[in-house]
Simulated scan of single mutants.
Amino acid sequence: MDNMVDGTEKVNRVDGMGKGPAPEAVADAPGYELPLLLFAGFRTLIDRLHAELARQGHPGLRPAHGFAMQAVGVRGATASEIGRRLGVSKQAAGKTVDRLIALGYAHRADDPADARRKLIRLTPHGIDALRRSAAVFDELRAEWAATAGADRLRDLEATLRAVVPPHSFRLDAAGWLGGS
């Protein structure tokens, strides 16, 4: 197996299946590996979430829909507000909203404060998806705690809270990844 990246020896990574070195043995991993591992962890959680949501009656839900439903929030939001929260154009947000409406996760409603504005609101189906997502995330976290150890997982979370600025909890991942 090729163990070189750009002429630099690559450290074997732990694959979660008992292969590779123990986490303590990877003391001097190259810097580029950290964002890849963090993204792989994120992707693993999101992929497992959506597989479980599909089994629980939400087969058409995609990661972008979850971000959009979070952007809609409990009070509802306009397409412009959703676009700002997601870091995408109003038109891109509108397409995502149209898809959420078609799938039954959201609907358009008059804004009681301004009759000229339309609010996007979550339907009971959308709220159900978010509630189920929260429960599945709790189950996935428990699995990670069982695999890595509860103390190690709490330490990882505490470390991430220490290095990640509080304002980094944002919904604009899709816009940021897309470069718009």
Rank of each mutant, 00 (worst) to 15 (best):
L53R: 05
L53W: 02
L53D: 02
A54E: 01
A54D: 05
R55A: 12
Q56S: 15
H58M: 08
H58F: 15
P59I: 15
P59D: 08
P59Q: 09
G60C: 04
L61S: 13
R62Y: 12
P63G: 10
P63L: 09
P63N: 10
A64V: 15
H65E: 04
H65F: 10
G66N: 08
G66L: 15
F67Q: 02
F67S: 06
F67P: 01
A68P: 00
A68Q: 06
A71M: 07
G73R: 04
G73Y: 06
G73K: 03
R75I: 11
R75D: 09
R75K: 13
G76E: 02
G76H: 09
G76P: 07
A77G: 11
S80R: 01
S80W: 00
S80K: 00
I82V: 13
R84T: 14
R85P: 00
R85D: 02
R85N: 05
R85F: 04
V88Q: 00
V88C: 05
Q91V: 11
Q91E: 03
A92Q: 03
G94A: 05
G94C: 02
G94H: 01
K95Q: 14
T96K: 06
T96F: 03
R99P: 01
L100D: 04
I101W: 06
I101V: 15
I101D: 01
I101R: 07
I101H: 06
A102K: 11
A102L: 07
A102P: 11
L103P: 06
L103E: 11
G104K: 10
G104F: 03
G104W: 01
Y105M: 05
Y105R: 06
Y105L: 15
Y105H: 14
Y105A: 08
A106E: 01
A106P: 08
H107A: 14
H107L: 14
H107W: 03
R108M: 15
A109V: 15
A109H: 07
A109I: 14
D110V: 15
D110S: 11
D111N: 15
P112G: 13
P112C: 12
A113Y: 13
A113E: 02
D114C: 12
A115D: 04
A115R: 10
A115G: 03
R116W: 07
R117T: 10
R117M: 11
R117K: 10
K118T: 14
R121C: 09
R121H: 08
R121V: 15
L122R: 03
L122P: 07
T123E: 01
P124Q: 02
H125A: 14
G126F: 05
G126D: 00
I127Q: 03
I127H: 06
I127A: 08
A129C: 13
A129I: 13
L130E: 05
R131K: 09
R131E: 09
R132D: 03
R132E: 03
R132I: 11
R132G: 12
S133Q: 13
S133M: 06
S133G: 09
S133A: 10
A134L: 12
A134Y: 03
A135D: 05
V136P: 02
V136M: 07
V136E: 01
F137T: 04
D138F: 14
L140M: 07
L140D: 00
L140P: 04
W144N: 01
W144Y: 09
A146K: 10
T147N: 09
D151A: 15
R152H: 07
